[in-house]
Amino acid sequence: MPGDLTFRRALPQDATALGAMHVRSWQESYRGLLPDAALAALDPVERAERWRRNLEGGAEALLALSGGEILGFVGWGRARDEALGGGGEIYGLYVLARAQRRGVGSRLLTQGAAALAEGGFSGFSLWVFAGNARARQFYAAMGGRPGLRKTISRDGWSLEEIAYSWDGPPARAGAAPRGTAA
């Protein structure tokens, strides 16, 4: 990964690249966890349109970029699931496989948590597939505590999710990454 890693807020004009990266990260991360047909059916154009609508509607997301390419993102806001207690929620945290284990995910999680704190949320939660051992190890290493469980069903598949929660910043929270734009 080049040394030119920068972070900035996502804008509606990022939607096309963000949609493509989001689909690619699902295909990389969930191979063997979700049915191959479900992963093959993911549509970058549809995902880009969803991102465009969300960003134009005020959704918050931070991008990790290298050489202009989106390597990862984190999105956040008020918890959508009442079972999470009405605090903050990380809606999604995805990093391309080639950029994983290089500090990108921890920096994104830290910045998402900081944005939630600035928004008045002292703690936050996120949902992760129970079978995603790598992500669960990452969240545990970052100080997340597993808790609630639920099963989601979509397009002919069902998987259990686990909520990980933090009462404050992630365990490895540090200084803001260079190039972070609020």
Rank of each mutant, 00 (worst) to 15 (best):
R50A: 14
V128P: 00
G86M: 05
G123K: 03
Y30G: 08
D81R: 09
L126Q: 00
E46M: 12
A114D: 11
W51M: 07
Y91F: 13
R53A: 13
L62E: 03
R98A: 13
P44G: 07
A99R: 01
S122M: 10
F73N: 00
L34K: 01
A99F: 09
Q100K: 14
A41E: 12
L42P: 01
V45T: 15
D36G: 14
G92K: 09
L126F: 00
I70R: 02
R53Y: 07
R50H: 14
E49A: 11
V104D: 02
W76C: 09
T110Q: 13
V104Y: 01
E56F: 08
E118P: 01
I90N: 01
L84E: 02
A48K: 02
Y30N: 08
L71M: 14
D36E: 15
R50W: 12
E56C: 12
E49K: 02
S122C: 09
S125K: 00
G57M: 08
A61I: 05
G119D: 10
V128R: 02
Q27V: 09
E60H: 13
P44R: 06
R98K: 08
E60S: 13
L96I: 15
E89T: 02
A97Q: 13
S29C: 13
A61Q: 06
A64V: 06
V45E: 14
E82A: 12
F129V: 15
R31Y: 06
A130N: 03
A115M: 10
Y30L: 09
G92F: 08
W51G: 04
A130Y: 06
G58A: 10
E46F: 08
F121D: 00
L108H: 04
L71G: 01
L65V: 12
N54R: 13
G120T: 04
F73Y: 15
A59M: 10
R107G: 04
V74T: 15
L116V: 11
S66H: 06
L34T: 04
L62I: 15
R101I: 09
V104C: 03
R53K: 12
E89V: 04
D43E: 12
Y94P: 06
A97T: 07
G123M: 04
A114E: 11
R101Y: 03
L116M: 06
V74G: 05
V45F: 14
A38S: 15
W76K: 04
G88E: 00
T110H: 13
E56M: 12
G68T: 14
V74I: 15
N54A: 13
G92L: 10
I90A: 07
D43G: 11
T110S: 15
G123H: 04
G105S: 07
E89G: 04
L96W: 05
G67K: 07
L42I: 11
L63R: 01
G72K: 07
P44V: 12
